[in-house]
Nucleic acid binder design. Structure first.
Lengths: 212, 212
DNA sequence: GGCTTGCTTGACTCGCAAGTCAACGCCCGT
DNA sequence: ACGGGCGTTGACTTGCGAGTCAAGCAAGCC
């Protein structure tokens, strides 16, 4: 059994190797522009081995997505469970995503650029996975509405979409090089900007009727 | 000349026919999944004619983009020139985009899903075109900062990205069917939500230090 | 009315990349 | 030491779809 375990993990290592190579290649050339042979040579394995571990290119993309998106959903779910303030939760979400970009930009690029957009044509489950993460944030916001911290005149879902959309386009800006994220400080400033704007924008008006 | 004109416009009509067919096909099957022959048969013209009017598939996509994105940039530029209030300008932007989706969802789908995301790998000019529109909004915001209507602690560019990102992800939600936009009222509610959140979120704090 | 010009046609070529598969060798269990 | 299973290899087949092109056709011109 020990040896089977070892074999398994050795085999698994090859799988990882291919997956990591795929992430690099997808990020660099784009999903549609790259060939299986590119992935194989990047991973330094034979062409055929890719097909031993994966049905086809799309399944590779799916695996990348599943692994990483699941993480985000978990973070959101656990943030919600702790009884933190909305500010804390929102900051945790923003931090998590921007830090992830900082550490593994290739992964983020693939998830954002190659998967998020093409999901119209991909399988249902993927859309559901997106929904799940969004729903988590929507729940957090709904709860904050209940406690009177967030304005009640807007659907939580729409607010959640706005938050994610803001983050995503900023990431896209990084990826396209139209926003310069080189300095560490900049990331922090952007995190701050996102949380600030939404905390202020979503806050329930206090004693102030905001006269017309 | 009259006859040349007539010919020209007749020829142009074929071009349009192909372009419109391409929009429909791209929206339905996705850019990468469709063949030139799909476009030709959708347009009810011969295969070869597509190559008479366009270099290749990518040039078709480019034409679709150029035509439609230019429009957005113009709207933004003209909104800025009129000395309107920020609220009016922001509302005009949001209205324009959501109304466009309502009227020609296929076009919006192609621009949002097929072009926006893939621009990392496409030609520079496209990225510049995006930048231009974003820059227009950033300028509007910078001006509003100068007049004290908008908080000065954030980069205009980042704020512009947030606004566009919010709009874009809501459109994506429509396209994926995760947001239900069927009822006309819903569109209006969403327009309202976007403008409201940002007007409040970007507003400069008045006499209120927003304690703690 | 023929001739020319240029839009239009669709069958054909050709290259590329996906996916297959038969053989190989390492490693393990007996 | 031997046999077998499984991870691994990469040459080969196959099909698809982009792009070509030579021949048709319509309509203006002399």
């Amino acid at each position: 059994m020990t040896e089977k375990r070892r074999k398994n993990s050795a085999a698994h290592e090859k799988r990882r190797q291919i997956l990591n190579a795929a992430i690099r290649v997808f990020a660099q050339k784009g999903f549609h522009r790259c060939r299986i042979s590119d992935i194989a040579s990047e991973a330094k394995v034979a062409y055929g081995l890719v097909y031993h571990y994966f049905e086809n290119k799309e399944e590779i993309l799916n695996s990348i997505f599943d692994e990483n998106w699941g993480l985000l959903t978990e973070v959101l779910a656990s943030a919600d469970e702790r009884g933190d303030d909305l500010e804390v939760k929102l900051r945790a979400l923003v931090d998590f995503i921007l830090d992830a970009y900082r550490m593994v930009p290739d992964v983020i690029q693939v998830v954002v650029m190659e998967i998020a957009r093409s999901s119209k044509f991909l399988k249902r489950p993927k859309v559901d996975a997106f929904e799940k993460a969004f729903q988590n944030l929507a729940t957090i916001l709904a709860r904050a509405q209940a406690t009177g911290h967030v304005r009640k005149d807007l659907e939580p879902k729409i607010m959640a979409y706005m938050v994610f959309g803001s983050i995503e386009l900023i990431l896209t800006g990084y990826l396209l090089g139209t926003i310069e994220p080189s300095i560490g400080e900049t990331y922090e400033a952007h995190k701050q900007a996102i949380t600030d704007v939404f905390l202020q924008g979503l806050r329930a008006p206090r004693a102030e009727p905001a006269g017309a």
